[in-house]
Design a protein around this nucleic acid. Structure first.
Ligand SMILES: [Mn+2]
Ligand SMILES: [Mn+2]
Ligand SMILES: [Zn+2]
Ligand SMILES: [Zn+2]
Lengths: 155, 155
DNA sequence: CCCTTATTGATAATGGTTCTCATTATCAAT
DNA sequence: ATTGATAATGAGAACCATTATCAATAAGGG
């Protein structure tokens, strides 16, 4: 059986969207699956380069664009001048939904899932109301709290 | 009495922060006060240039940075590759707190204040909990819903 | 009015992201 | 397995929003 990677599901999704399955795309999605960090395109490029030295930065950007468009990956702006990516909520719980606490001083980002239950319930209600009133098809939401983290406060 | 511009208050804040009051800073803040749009730095530059042709783009960026730091102006990323600015909530209600609905297709942005009451109440609770748990001093929050707007859906 | 120094405008530099294009790889049909 | 249409790729150039530089200017305390 060798390594047990649940590849079938995303390969299916790729082909279902008319995209071809390639080594680059697999390894980029792998990199995002294997970390809990918020990687930039260059982070991913450098990480992936180790196992796949020939890969180009442009391919990383192109693949991320596709992954975001397919909803497999989320793209964030935490205010440090580059986009950050993370795996979207996945059925097999390799990633689950959370929101962010961002330190405007050191740019550190904390994932939190506390209070999510209440938030999610309210969000559902709000999304429903907004969808109806503005005839808007809501796909996604972003909730971020900005402030100063513990370490930065001790100064 | 002529024009009634409530200038005193922000001039005081500027000087209180050690900044000098200049024509450029006044007119940039004016531009943000007089619109309900989400202006980019260049939007502001072009708008302000009409009354003040000598102004430079760098001054617009520098002033916006100060205004954001002082909390008078909010900076957003709506995913169109440039920062967008709007007047922060003001005591005299020239601007009031709201959240955003963003069309990922045409980049249109809708301000909404519906449902804000419930959201704000929950946010207060959540902020309290998060501050305590993570020892984080929360200054600000961003809530954005992404999706497809009415016009883009008709296609 | 003077002096110190913050601010400014013009412009170059920076850096993340996107584009170009010749080459290569995928995969459905044979 | 082979082929062919064409999607994907890598290298590098181009793009463009934002920042840094620096000499000239203007704010404001005395
Ligand atoms: Mn996260
Ligand atoms: Mn707004
Ligand atoms: Zn910090
Ligand atoms: Zn739209």
């Amino acid at each position: 059986m060798g390594r047990c990677r649940g590849n079938a599901w995303w390969q299916g999704r790729f082909r279902g969207c008319g995209y071809r399955v390639t080594a680059g795309r697999e390894i980029i999605l792998d990199a995002l699956t294997k970390t809990d960090k918020h990687l930039s395109a260059e982070d991913i490029y450098l990480s992936v380069k180790k196992a796949c030295p020939g890969i180009g930065l442009a391919t990383v950007y192109r693949t991320l664009e596709i992954l975001v468009e397919m909803g497999l990956v989320l793209k964030f702006d935490f205010g440090d001048g580059r986009a950050r990516y993370e795996l979207a909520e996945s059925p097999d719980k390799r990633a689950n939904h959370h929101h962010h606490l961002i330190c405007t001083s050191c740019k550190r980002v904390i994932d939190y899932t506390d209070f999510i239950e209440d938030e999610v319930e309210l969000l559902r209600k709000t999304e429903k109301g907004l969808s109806a009133k503005y005839n808007f098809d809501i796909k996604n939401h972003v909730i971020q709290f900005y402030g100063i983290c513990e370490k930065c406060r001790r100064k």
